[in-house]
Design a protein around this nucleic acid. Sequence first.
DNA 1: TGTGCCTGCTCACTATAGTACGCACCTGCT
DNA 2: AGCAGGTGCGTACTATAGTGAGCAGGCACA
Lengths: 127, 127
Amino acid sequence: MADDPWSGQVEALGRFIHAQRKLANLSLRELAALSDLSNAYLSQLERGMHHPSMRSVTQIARALGVPVESMLAEAGLGDDGGDDDADTARQEPEISAEAAIRRDPTLTPAQRDALLAVLKSFGSSSE
Amino acid sequence: MADDPWSGQVEALGRFIHAQRKLANLSLRELAALSDLSNAYLSQLERGMHHPSMRSVTQIARALGVPVESMLAEAGLGDDGGDDDADTARQEPEISAEAAIRRDPTLTPAQRDALLAVLKSFGSSSE
DNA sequence: TGTGCCTGCTCACTATAGTACGCACCTGCT
DNA sequence: AGCAGGTGCGTACTATAGTGAGCAGGCACA
Protein backbone atom coordinates (compact mmCIF):
# COMPACT_ATOMS: atom_id res chain seq x y z
CA MET A 1 0.00 0.00 0.00
CA ALA A 2 2.40 2.67 -0.98
CA ASP A 3 -0.38 4.79 -2.33
CA ASP A 4 -3.02 5.48 0.23
CA PRO A 5 -5.95 7.48 -1.07
CA TRP A 6 -7.87 6.41 2.00
CA SER A 7 -5.94 8.57 4.38
CA GLY A 8 -8.04 11.48 3.21
CA GLN A 9 -11.23 9.57 3.84
CA VAL A 10 -10.47 8.86 7.47
CA GLU A 11 -9.75 12.52 8.00
CA ALA A 12 -13.08 13.43 6.52
CA LEU A 13 -14.79 10.83 8.63
CA GLY A 14 -12.98 12.11 11.69
CA ARG A 15 -14.08 15.66 11.06
CA PHE A 16 -17.62 14.47 10.50
CA ILE A 17 -17.71 12.57 13.77
CA HIS A 18 -16.20 15.51 15.59
CA ALA A 19 -18.75 17.89 14.11
CA GLN A 20 -21.67 15.64 14.94
CA ARG A 21 -20.40 15.10 18.46
CA LYS A 22 -20.05 18.80 19.08
CA LEU A 23 -23.46 19.34 17.58
CA ALA A 24 -24.91 16.92 20.07
CA ASN A 25 -23.02 18.52 22.94
CA LEU A 26 -21.32 15.28 23.78
CA SER A 27 -17.94 14.79 25.38
CA LEU A 28 -15.63 12.10 24.13
CA ARG A 29 -16.40 9.97 27.16
CA GLU A 30 -20.12 10.37 26.76
CA LEU A 31 -19.98 9.34 23.15
CA ALA A 32 -17.72 6.52 24.18
CA ALA A 33 -20.30 5.26 26.64
CA LEU A 34 -23.06 5.61 24.08
CA SER A 35 -21.20 3.87 21.32
CA ASP A 36 -19.55 1.24 23.48
CA LEU A 37 -16.10 2.31 22.35
CA SER A 38 -13.22 3.86 24.27
CA ASN A 39 -12.80 7.61 24.55
CA ALA A 40 -9.19 7.17 23.54
CA TYR A 41 -10.14 5.49 20.32
CA LEU A 42 -12.77 8.07 19.46
CA SER A 43 -10.20 10.78 20.00
CA GLN A 44 -7.88 9.06 17.59
CA LEU A 45 -10.67 8.51 15.09
CA GLU A 46 -11.59 12.18 15.10
CA ARG A 47 -7.98 13.00 14.37
CA GLY A 48 -8.02 10.65 11.40
CA MET A 49 -5.56 8.17 12.80
CA HIS A 50 -7.52 5.00 12.13
CA HIS A 51 -9.68 3.11 9.67
CA PRO A 52 -12.66 2.10 11.81
CA SER A 53 -14.36 -1.24 11.28
CA MET A 54 -17.93 -1.55 10.13
CA ARG A 55 -18.89 -2.43 13.66
CA SER A 56 -17.39 0.76 15.06
CA VAL A 57 -18.94 2.92 12.39
CA THR A 58 -22.35 1.41 12.99
CA GLN A 59 -22.09 1.93 16.71
CA ILE A 60 -20.95 5.52 16.38
CA ALA A 61 -23.64 6.33 13.86
CA ARG A 62 -26.29 4.94 16.16
CA ALA A 63 -24.91 6.77 19.16
CA LEU A 64 -24.92 10.05 17.26
CA GLY A 65 -28.37 9.48 15.87
CA VAL A 66 -27.03 9.71 12.36
CA PRO A 67 -27.96 7.22 9.64
CA VAL A 68 -25.06 4.96 8.83
CA GLU A 69 -25.30 5.91 5.19
CA SER A 70 -24.40 9.47 6.05
CA MET A 71 -21.19 8.37 7.66
CA LEU A 72 -20.34 6.29 4.66
CA ALA A 73 -21.18 9.16 2.39
CA GLU A 74 -18.64 11.23 4.29
CA ALA A 75 -16.00 8.60 4.69
CA GLY A 76 -16.35 6.11 1.90
CA LEU A 77 -17.53 8.21 -0.97
CA GLY A 78 -16.97 11.68 0.31
CA ASP A 79 -14.78 12.44 -2.63
CA ASP A 80 -13.22 15.73 -3.20
CA GLY A 81 -15.19 18.00 -5.43
CA GLY A 82 -15.62 20.91 -3.18
CA ASP A 83 -16.68 21.87 0.23
CA ASP A 84 -18.31 19.26 2.34
CA ASP A 85 -18.85 21.23 5.45
CA ALA A 86 -22.07 22.74 4.28
CA ASP A 87 -25.13 21.26 5.82
CA THR A 88 -26.16 18.06 4.20
CA ALA A 89 -29.63 18.79 3.02
CA ARG A 90 -30.52 15.15 2.62
CA GLN A 91 -30.18 14.43 6.28
CA GLU A 92 -33.06 14.13 8.70
CA PRO A 93 -33.18 17.67 10.04
CA GLU A 94 -34.25 17.04 13.56
CA ILE A 95 -35.76 14.04 15.14
CA SER A 96 -37.72 14.94 18.20
CA ALA A 97 -36.62 13.58 21.51
CA GLU A 98 -40.13 12.38 22.18
CA ALA A 99 -40.23 10.26 19.05
CA ALA A 100 -36.90 8.73 19.85
CA ILE A 101 -37.90 7.95 23.41
CA ARG A 102 -40.97 6.12 22.20
CA ARG A 103 -38.94 4.12 19.72
CA ASP A 104 -35.89 3.26 21.80
CA PRO A 105 -36.06 -0.50 22.37
CA THR A 106 -33.60 -0.42 25.25
CA LEU A 107 -36.11 1.36 27.45
CA THR A 108 -38.65 -0.42 29.56
CA PRO A 109 -42.24 0.86 29.38
CA ALA A 110 -41.88 2.33 32.86
CA GLN A 111 -38.71 4.14 31.89
CA ARG A 112 -40.29 5.42 28.72
CA ASP A 113 -43.18 6.69 30.76
CA ALA A 114 -40.94 8.49 33.20
CA LEU A 115 -39.00 10.23 30.48
CA LEU A 116 -42.14 11.27 28.65
CA ALA A 117 -43.56 12.63 31.88
CA VAL A 118 -40.51 14.79 32.40
CA LEU A 119 -40.64 15.90 28.82
CA LYS A 120 -44.29 16.77 29.11
CA SER A 121 -43.61 18.87 32.20
CA PHE A 122 -41.57 21.19 30.03
CA GLY A 123 -44.52 21.93 27.88
CA SER A 124 -42.17 22.54 24.99
CA SER A 125 -42.79 19.38 23.10
CA SER A 126 -44.73 20.46 20.06
CA GLU A 127 -45.44 16.93 18.93
CA MET B 1 -19.88 -7.79 25.34
CA ALA B 2 -21.67 -11.02 25.86
CA ASP B 3 -24.38 -9.92 23.51
CA ASP B 4 -23.12 -9.64 19.96
CA PRO B 5 -25.80 -8.68 17.48
CA TRP B 6 -23.08 -8.00 14.94
CA SER B 7 -22.20 -11.60 14.37
CA GLY B 8 -25.32 -11.90 12.27
CA GLN B 9 -24.39 -8.83 10.27
CA VAL B 10 -21.07 -10.20 9.11
CA GLU B 11 -22.76 -13.35 7.97
CA ALA B 12 -25.22 -11.35 5.93
CA LEU B 13 -22.41 -9.29 4.47
CA GLY B 14 -20.49 -12.45 3.67
CA ARG B 15 -23.40 -13.97 1.83
CA PHE B 16 -23.91 -10.74 -0.04
CA ILE B 17 -20.30 -10.60 -1.17
CA HIS B 18 -20.38 -14.24 -2.17
CA ALA B 19 -23.56 -13.75 -4.19
CA GLN B 20 -22.20 -10.68 -5.95
CA ARG B 21 -18.93 -12.40 -6.72
CA LYS B 22 -20.67 -15.41 -8.22
CA LEU B 23 -22.92 -13.10 -10.14
CA ALA B 24 -19.89 -11.44 -11.65
CA ASN B 25 -18.28 -14.81 -12.39
CA LEU B 26 -15.22 -13.98 -10.38
CA SER B 27 -12.94 -16.32 -8.51
CA LEU B 28 -11.69 -15.45 -5.06
CA ARG B 29 -8.29 -14.64 -6.48
CA GLU B 30 -9.71 -12.45 -9.20
CA LEU B 31 -11.75 -10.49 -6.73
CA ALA B 32 -8.70 -10.35 -4.51
CA ALA B 33 -6.68 -8.77 -7.28
CA LEU B 34 -9.47 -6.35 -8.09
CA SER B 35 -10.05 -5.29 -4.54
CA ASP B 36 -6.43 -5.33 -3.45
CA LEU B 37 -7.15 -7.80 -0.68
CA SER B 38 -5.99 -11.38 -0.17
CA ASN B 39 -8.01 -14.30 -1.46
CA ALA B 40 -7.73 -15.95 1.91
CA TYR B 41 -9.28 -12.98 3.62
CA LEU B 42 -12.11 -12.74 1.12
CA SER B 43 -12.82 -16.39 1.70
CA GLN B 44 -13.04 -15.78 5.42
CA LEU B 45 -15.18 -12.71 4.92
CA GLU B 46 -17.67 -14.62 2.81
CA ARG B 47 -17.93 -17.12 5.63
CA GLY B 48 -18.69 -14.39 8.13
CA MET B 49 -15.51 -14.82 10.12
CA HIS B 50 -14.48 -11.16 10.27
CA HIS B 51 -15.67 -7.59 10.75
CA PRO B 52 -14.15 -5.85 7.76
CA SER B 53 -12.90 -2.30 8.03
CA MET B 54 -14.39 0.59 6.10
CA ARG B 55 -11.42 0.46 3.81
CA SER B 56 -11.98 -3.19 2.93
CA VAL B 57 -15.69 -2.73 2.41
CA THR B 58 -15.10 0.21 0.14
CA GLN B 59 -12.56 -1.67 -1.92
CA ILE B 60 -14.76 -4.72 -2.29
CA ALA B 61 -17.75 -2.63 -3.23
CA ARG B 62 -15.72 -0.88 -5.89
CA ALA B 63 -14.32 -4.15 -7.20
CA LEU B 64 -17.78 -5.64 -7.47
CA GLY B 65 -19.23 -2.53 -9.04
CA VAL B 66 -21.72 -2.23 -6.23
CA PRO B 67 -22.47 1.04 -4.45
CA VAL B 68 -21.11 1.06 -0.96
CA GLU B 69 -24.52 1.88 0.41
CA SER B 70 -25.79 -1.46 -0.82
CA MET B 71 -23.18 -3.28 1.16
CA LEU B 72 -24.06 -1.27 4.20
CA ALA B 73 -27.71 -1.97 3.67
CA GLU B 74 -26.88 -5.66 3.77
CA ALA B 75 -24.33 -5.58 6.51
CA GLY B 76 -25.14 -2.70 8.75
CA LEU B 77 -28.88 -2.48 8.71
CA GLY B 78 -30.13 -5.46 6.83
CA ASP B 79 -32.00 -8.38 8.30
CA ASP B 80 -29.94 -11.24 9.56
CA GLY B 81 -29.81 -14.54 7.83
CA GLY B 82 -33.27 -15.69 6.80
CA ASP B 83 -33.61 -14.83 3.17
CA ASP B 84 -36.57 -17.15 2.97
CA ASP B 85 -38.04 -16.16 6.26
CA ALA B 86 -41.74 -15.52 6.14
CA ASP B 87 -41.73 -12.60 8.51
CA THR B 88 -40.99 -9.23 6.99
CA ALA B 89 -38.51 -7.92 9.50
CA ARG B 90 -38.30 -4.34 8.42
CA GLN B 91 -36.14 -2.54 10.88
CA GLU B 92 -36.61 0.99 12.11
CA PRO B 93 -33.79 3.52 12.16
CA GLU B 94 -33.68 2.91 15.87
CA ILE B 95 -31.73 5.83 17.22
CA SER B 96 -31.03 5.98 20.89
CA ALA B 97 -33.21 8.21 23.02
CA GLU B 98 -30.18 9.80 24.61
CA ALA B 99 -28.76 10.88 21.28
CA ALA B 100 -32.07 12.40 20.26
CA ILE B 101 -32.42 14.23 23.54
CA ARG B 102 -29.06 15.85 23.07
CA ARG B 103 -29.83 16.86 19.54
CA ASP B 104 -33.34 18.16 20.03
CA PRO B 105 -33.10 21.92 19.46
CA THR B 106 -36.42 22.60 21.13
CA LEU B 107 -34.99 21.73 24.50
CA THR B 108 -33.19 24.19 26.71
CA PRO B 109 -29.87 23.07 28.20
CA ALA B 110 -31.51 22.75 31.60
CA GLN B 111 -34.27 20.59 30.20
CA ARG B 112 -31.80 18.46 28.34
CA ASP B 113 -29.89 18.02 31.52
CA ALA B 114 -32.95 16.97 33.46
CA LEU B 115 -33.93 14.37 30.90
CA LEU B 116 -30.44 12.98 30.73
CA ALA B 117 -30.30 12.77 34.49
CA VAL B 118 -33.46 10.70 34.49
CA LEU B 119 -32.15 8.56 31.71
CA LYS B 120 -28.88 8.04 33.49
CA SER B 121 -30.69 7.01 36.65
CA PHE B 122 -31.96 3.99 34.77
CA GLY B 123 -28.47 2.65 34.71
CA SER B 124 -28.54 1.87 31.01
CA SER B 125 -29.64 -1.67 30.17
CA SER B 126 -26.59 -2.44 28.09
CA GLU B 127 -23.39 -3.12 29.99
C1' DT C 1 -5.84 28.34 47.88
C1' DG C 2 -6.62 23.55 47.07
C1' DT C 3 -9.48 19.72 46.03
C1' DG C 4 -12.66 17.51 42.95
C1' DC C 5 -14.51 16.80 38.54
C1' DC C 6 -14.67 17.74 34.02
C1' DT C 7 -12.27 18.22 29.26
C1' DG C 8 -9.23 16.10 25.33
C1' DC C 9 -5.05 13.63 24.53
C1' DT C 10 -0.98 10.17 24.49
C1' DC C 11 1.21 5.94 25.19
C1' DA C 12 1.89 0.90 26.16
C1' DC C 13 -0.59 -2.74 25.55
C1' DT C 14 -4.15 -6.59 23.71
C1' DA C 15 -7.33 -8.26 20.33
C1' DT C 16 -8.28 -8.96 15.79
C1' DA C 17 -8.25 -7.57 10.85
C1' DG C 18 -5.74 -8.89 6.93
C1' DT C 19 -1.58 -11.54 4.49
C1' DA C 20 1.73 -15.15 2.60
C1' DC C 21 2.08 -19.64 1.90
C1' DG C 22 0.76 -24.04 1.11
C1' DC C 23 -2.67 -27.71 1.32
C1' DA C 24 -6.50 -30.81 -0.84
C1' DC C 25 -9.42 -31.11 -4.51
C1' DC C 26 -11.02 -30.91 -9.36
C1' DT C 27 -10.48 -30.70 -14.78
C1' DG C 28 -8.34 -30.96 -18.86
C1' DC C 29 -4.27 -31.98 -21.62
C1' DT C 30 -0.33 -35.06 -23.67
C1' DA D 1 -0.70 -42.47 -15.66
C1' DG D 2 1.30 -37.92 -14.60
C1' DC D 3 1.50 -32.92 -14.73
C1' DA D 4 -0.31 -27.94 -15.36
C1' DG D 5 -3.40 -24.83 -13.82
C1' DG D 6 -7.81 -23.84 -11.92
C1' DT D 7 -10.87 -23.76 -7.52
C1' DG D 8 -11.76 -22.68 -2.22
C1' DC D 9 -9.80 -23.16 2.39
C1' DG D 10 -6.72 -23.59 6.93
C1' DT D 11 -3.05 -21.76 9.32
C1' DA D 12 0.92 -19.17 11.17
C1' DC D 13 2.22 -14.86 11.02
C1' DT D 14 2.26 -9.35 10.76
C1' DA D 15 -0.09 -4.98 10.84
C1' DT D 16 -3.28 -2.27 12.91
C1' DA D 17 -7.82 -1.50 15.13
C1' DG D 18 -9.30 -0.69 19.67
C1' DT D 19 -8.49 -0.45 25.12
C1' DG D 20 -7.04 1.08 29.97
C1' DA D 21 -4.49 4.01 32.54
C1' DG D 22 -2.77 8.19 33.39
C1' DC D 23 -1.25 12.76 31.82
C1' DA D 24 -1.87 18.29 31.66
C1' DG D 25 -5.06 21.88 31.64
C1' DG D 26 -9.73 24.30 32.72
C1' DC D 27 -13.64 25.58 35.81
C1' DA D 28 -16.40 25.48 40.07
C1' DC D 29 -16.92 25.56 44.93
C1' DA D 30 -15.20 25.12 50.10
